[in-house]
Design a binder for these strands. Sequence first.
DNA 1: CCTACCGATCGGTAGG
DNA 2: CCTACCGATCGGTAGG
Lengths: 198, 198
Amino acid sequence: MARIKTDNNVSRKEVIVAKAAVLFREKGFKAASMRDLAESVGVEAASLYNHIKSKTELLHELCFGVANRFMQKMEEVEQEKIPAGEKVEKLLRFHINEMVHHYEEVYVSDREWKHLSDPYLSNFQNQRRIYRKRFAAIIETGIRAKEIEPIDAPTAVLIFLHAISGIESWHRSKQKISAEELENNMITILVDGLYPRK
Amino acid sequence: MARIKTDNNVSRKEVIVAKAAVLFREKGFKAASMRDLAESVGVEAASLYNHIKSKTELLHELCFGVANRFMQKMEEVEQEKIPAGEKVEKLLRFHINEMVHHYEEVYVSDREWKHLSDPYLSNFQNQRRIYRKRFAAIIETGIRAKEIEPIDAPTAVLIFLHAISGIESWHRSKQKISAEELENNMITILVDGLYPRK
DNA sequence: CCTACCGATCGGTAGG
DNA sequence: CCTACCGATCGGTAGG
């Protein structure tokens, strides 16, 4: 049964975080002020601090919310008993979908994490590095199984992730093609380089 | 004959612009202060204004310097009488080389142009859009000539450009592989998806 | 190129 | 949730 939220404090905070994502994407973390955010929420700047501790807390929540979703998916895909090439494709499709359906948060997590403060900053960088290594490991497994071309796996991972995070420009320009079409186009271009020629 | 610069004003400005590129990349345009920049140049903040008009002027110079180089290369490649696939490869290699050898400026131009002020902002966005269209047009020529797979050209351009701008992460992590190796790896991964299977 | 300093804006707090 | 307000920092100027 769907539960309607009655706790105003919780629901209010979620609104603030969501509005912050939009603002941080539009202006960048540093250029977006708490007064901007207050206006977009519809309260005075000081009132925001009844729901959040600081501006950086908003960035933490956004960055780690996204990072955790990606980590969870990685764990899930690693467990599956399918060929490495299919694992790669599943991860790529997940990335594309996250980008299309949770654009603001994913974008902020991808481009604004620099402004995290240091207990969180190193934590986040670590998670990123680990994620990429595990992604590369899947590709390397596929290469050893002669299922994927013998490419440089870490380079391939960087190409894939950055290529997908580039959907932004598209999203902005009023989405001439559907999300599904976009996904299939990207997979065709990215993955076709992976498999051995017949 | 190589000319040694004696005009201190010009040479001083070049130093400031170069140092600004490093700073804007490290901290982002908004988070980098003129006092930071002054310190890295070795003068007081006020002294910078004898060489530049404003903080945004530094961003203009960086963004348009890079944009002009790319535009010039595009013009050059368009003129050549070679197959479309080779034109694409030439442009990609140029992008990779610019990223490796002029990392700071290219990075700033790519990620911080948002903070340009408006006569320049729309100008820059226009140049970008035009560049991408001309790149896509080359790919479409190749497709019509049955020389390139029938992919969605604008999507391919976005993938290519963003994939290459992702070299950052690599550059940061003390360059385990050489620039040439990196270039060849990237071209293999990116271009192999382009040509028809035998 | 420096000292001195400005008005504006920032993130955040006190107190109700 | 608001009014009132803080110390810090910002980009930039005046004047020498």
